[in-house]
Structure formats: structure tokens, C-alpha cells
Amino acid sequence: MAIFLQAATNGLLLGGVYGLVSAGLTLIFGVMRIVNFAHGEFLMLGMFATYWLGRASGLHPYVLLVPVGVLMFGVGLLVQRALIDRVLGRTDEAQILLTVGLSAFLQGAALFVWGADYRTIPTPLASASVAVGPVYLSVARLVAFGVAVVLAAGLYVLLVRTDLGRAMRAAAENREVALLLGIDTGRIYRLAFGIGTGLVGVAGALMAPVLATFPTVGTLFALTAFVVVVLGGMGDIVGAMIGGMIIGVTEALIATYVALDLAPLATFLIFLLILLVRPQGLLGKGRV
């Protein structure tokens, strides 16, 4: 039983971070109907930003959450303005190919500039743990989980209770009507993309103490994020968090009870299943 709880807890903690990564992706899709295939690379950039800022300033990664988030928000704004904006009216395929190209570009550039070496941020956190009953929780992962949940909740509140959020949901619902209502959709899209990217940047900073940083680290997270987003319902923040935890726990349980390397396989099978049986996701109609 202790083993089951430990495995489930491991999965839950990791799932929270999956949820945060996916929340950004699902926000972007919900508002702009764009699936950002370069989302994983923004995670990677967030991790590298944390690494370099940490080296330069000596500050702890958790202190760097805010600057990294702000930095990645800015990056998101830039990318939206320079690239994404230009394909908004075009076909799905054009949008996919643009972000796929962006993903390849960012990965290749990171590999070229920083090299393939794995970098770690040495903090005492790596082995610190807290015992809750028979289960040991890694402090670093616990913090990551906590921050992820808080941020996701914050995003949800933003969308539901603020004017900006309402404007975003209006633009998501129907672009033409939103324009008629005087909503500056251009600004909305920029903010949505910026926030989505900022969130995944923060996720990177959260993962930096526990995960090695290297140029291709984003790929696996990105693929998992796609699955989570579809599972939770595209555009649904709560769905992203819940979906993230479901995937996290499923992977952990399969890893412990079936086979370690079958965990990603299970994730993709779930993905295909959802796409075929219930493409709108578990939580039903997209609800930004």
C-alpha cells in the first residue's frame, strides 16, 4: 500500500507541473485556436534562462521564478507579433508548420549556442524530502506542484472574473463579434500568447532544480502537454490541471507496476483513444 501511495504521489506531483505546462498551451489554443508546437522549446528556454540567470546572480531558482516568467512573457509577446499573427487567418496546416519550424529553429539554435551538455543547478533541494506517513515527498517537486496549482488557479480567476479574461473568452468564442464589441483582438491574442508562454517559462524554472537542462528537454514535455490538453479539453484550464494529474499518476503507476518504459506508450494510447472517442476532452465543451 505504501508503494502505491508513493507511486501515486510521485505521479501527482509531476502531474501538477504537466498541468502548468499544459495550461499555457490550452490558453493559447482556447483563445487563438493555435496549437503551439514550439511550446516545449519555451519550457527549455525557461530552464536555460533560470540556469544562466542563476549563474550570473547566484540567486536560487525559486527567486528567479518571477524574472524568468516575465522574460518568457516578453518572448511570447514578441513571437506572437512577429510570427503567429501572420498565420492567424490561414489553414491549420500553415499554423502547424509555422510552429513546427519555430520549434526546430529554437532547438537547433539552443543546441548550437549552448551545446548538448546536460547542465544541472546544484541545490541542496535535489535530495531534500519531507515524510508524510509512509510516503516521502521531494521538497523540490512539492514546491513545483504548489506553485503550479496557485498559478493555474490565478489564471482561472483571471479568465472568469476580470475584464481582460472576459474579453479573452469573447475573442475565443467568436472573433467577429468580439471585434464588433470593440475588443482589440490583436492585443488579446498577444496577451494570451504571452501569458501562455510566461507560464511554461515558470514551469521551466520550477523544474530546473530537479531536471537536467539541455536543448532537447522540451520535446517530451511538449508531447505530454498535447495529450493533457486534448484530455482535459482544449481551452479548458481546469481540464489541463486535472488532465495533467491524471497523466502523471497513470504514468507513475504504469512505471511502478507494469514496466518503466511503457509509461510513455500508455500516454500516447490514451491520446489516440481520446481523439477518437471523445475529442472534446473529459471536461466537455471548451470552456476558457
Binding site: A7, N10, A252, A255, T256, D261
Partner: peptide
């Protein structure tokens, strides 16, 4: 067995504990 380049060893270590 586990794949080289492990990013998370918690499941593995849980198995060792088990």
C-alpha cells in the same frame, strides 16, 4: 532496467524500496 538519460528516478527508487 531504465533508459539512460533518466529525468525522474522516483518510480525506480520506489521499486527498490518495494
Amino acid at each position: 532496467s531504465y533508459p539512460h538519460g533518466l529525468t525522474d528516478a522516483s518510480s525506480l527508487v520506489t521499486d527498490i524500496r518495494k
